[in-house]
Nucleic acid binder design. Sequence first.
DNA 1: CGACCGCGGGAAAACGTTTACACACCCGCT
DNA 2: AGCGGGTGTGTAAACGTTTTCCCGCGGTCG
Lengths: 355, 355
Amino acid sequence: MDIREIARRARVSTATVSRAINRVPTVDPQLAKRVWKVVDELGYYPNTQARALVLGRSRIFGLVVSEITNPFFPEIVQTFENLAVENNYEILLTSTVHDPKRMESAVRRMIERRVDGVAILTFGMEEALIEHLRYRKVPLVFVDVGPDVPGVANIRINYLSGIRQAVQHLAALRHTRIAFIAGPQHLKSAIARRDAFKTSMTEIGLSADLIVVGDHKMEGGMRAFRELHALSNPPTAVLCSNDMTAIGVMREAYEEDLRIPKGLSVVGFDDIHLTEFTTPPLTTVQMSQHELAKIAFRALLNEVDQPRSQERHIYELVTSLVLRRSTALAPGDNVSGGPARPNRNSSRKNSLVSR
Amino acid sequence: MDIREIARRARVSTATVSRAINRVPTVDPQLAKRVWKVVDELGYYPNTQARALVLGRSRIFGLVVSEITNPFFPEIVQTFENLAVENNYEILLTSTVHDPKRMESAVRRMIERRVDGVAILTFGMEEALIEHLRYRKVPLVFVDVGPDVPGVANIRINYLSGIRQAVQHLAALRHTRIAFIAGPQHLKSAIARRDAFKTSMTEIGLSADLIVVGDHKMEGGMRAFRELHALSNPPTAVLCSNDMTAIGVMREAYEEDLRIPKGLSVVGFDDIHLTEFTTPPLTTVQMSQHELAKIAFRALLNEVDQPRSQERHIYELVTSLVLRRSTALAPGDNVSGGPARPNRNSSRKNSLVSR
DNA sequence: CGACCGCGGGAAAACGTTTACACACCCGCT
DNA sequence: AGCGGGTGTGTAAACGTTTTCCCGCGGTCG
């Protein structure tokens, strides 16, 4: 069933059918109604491939993430998808599981399907695929790590804003020995977080020498905390480069019978959903996946609408602390009476029994 | 840059280029090499839309899930995607966030893109979209809930196998008061799990009357457990209809200062990744998302390869218990010496400090 | 030595749209 | 009454492939 069939039955030309379907205003309402009637009766749906072929636009965006099973990404995918359907786009999802072959095939697939743009929302070093796509003049948007070249949009993440809030929050709770568990040092984003920690500490006169590196996974957090805990003068608070690391710290603390937050304050980074389900719920620096996806999508949409090829667009995403229940006054510090901590601005979705 | 450009430069016809690219064996190796040379030089990639148009096959599968942010689904998506790239397919992902409008638009999108098949891996009542797709003779595969009609494949889940293992595991640990926290009773899958629990209990002579219904979310688990805990003779073990419920139970138990597993044994259902990150790691009934996605993909592939339209295909997925650390001997039961529990067959990815 | 057969390659049609261009028709003006 | 312009519809080309059909060539067999 194609447009010609519709044309025949409505006794008009294919041109008119096409125009009616696309709501071109000049077509006689009478005819339009006749066309729509047939369309509805037959349950006709235009063939997107044919359309794409002549329009030269596929209405498909590529979306590259590191791995969907990493809890950071599902919400990005969800938001991106929502925006896609709203704008009549389709999304071609790829998770490079840090595998160069996967990236290569991803690029091939995207080019073959003639995507209108690609968002690379991965925290990694997928430099390889960039060149290939740039060469084809596909609109691109990167996060954090993108090359500073014309024609590709870039989302800068303001790590400092959130990390500074976290550090000052801990300092306000009388913590002075604050440790940082960093991420893999080949990731730009991990380095940026560590640097933000150093800056935040030194600017309030605390020393930032308690830094140990993890792997952005639970195991790394456990290992790193074991190391810290063995110190002669262990930290009373730990700030982590991401939430999985913080979960590792909490797990290890539990094994060592250290209660959180009384015995140890822990702060994560990312604000993945999981943090609401830990015991206790994790205080963390939010880097809104929702916002990130939104910015990325908008950037692509802009780019296809008015391709200002030579400008380089920079967007910014700020981070900010969300308070839950994994931080408290430093042990040994006794203030008299009153609630020890600032207002909680976290969305308290989970009806917790107060204790 | 199109196939004609290649043809011109290689001084052959477009037919030959097409044949060379598609590795038709009859073409002269000499010519083929000439074609490939030009292809590589120019970085030519065939236009999939044009191809799909003439072939009548889009090489796209639809994948419908409930919501990607539900931790049950990311692994399904990942596996499905892996298989897709392996087989040169693309996937058109939709999460109906339980919203009828979303489902409708999902169907429209899939039909417009002319998907070759659709896997509906959602635990819900998306009956609406079924008819529309069936009418179009799109190959379908359902999980659990599909209508028993010819032409659509169905994946049956064997809930009983895993739940029976769980119940018997608990019974072996001397638990006799075993409660079940069910899921929303409008979901077929939730009902099936509850029934499997009843069957498993009665067949070993235990009474299955400690059933309270939750909502498959953490809050429901917390609420349900509060109810159970307030009983004059509370259960010593709780089996949950899904993992999020179990996490709620653990959280609530923590609030009530009940240690797991010493004071209470908890078993979940689904085996989402999250269960490895709880403290303690959750013993749960595995319903392999990986297998599920694999079966679904295979089923679709079968269907497009040899469309035996009238047969109805039934596949089965068995469930089975995976032991972690949230179950132990019933309190008050003292056996002398020896390890209290069976071998642990769980994959112990996380190097836990034994305690 | 000629006819026939097999094999490989080319011309062109087909897939289902959109849209540039052409062409009726009607209305109002001179 | 004739002409010009505006409005709305139709015809056909174009998008980039695959594939059918046909043709020419070389080899083999009678």
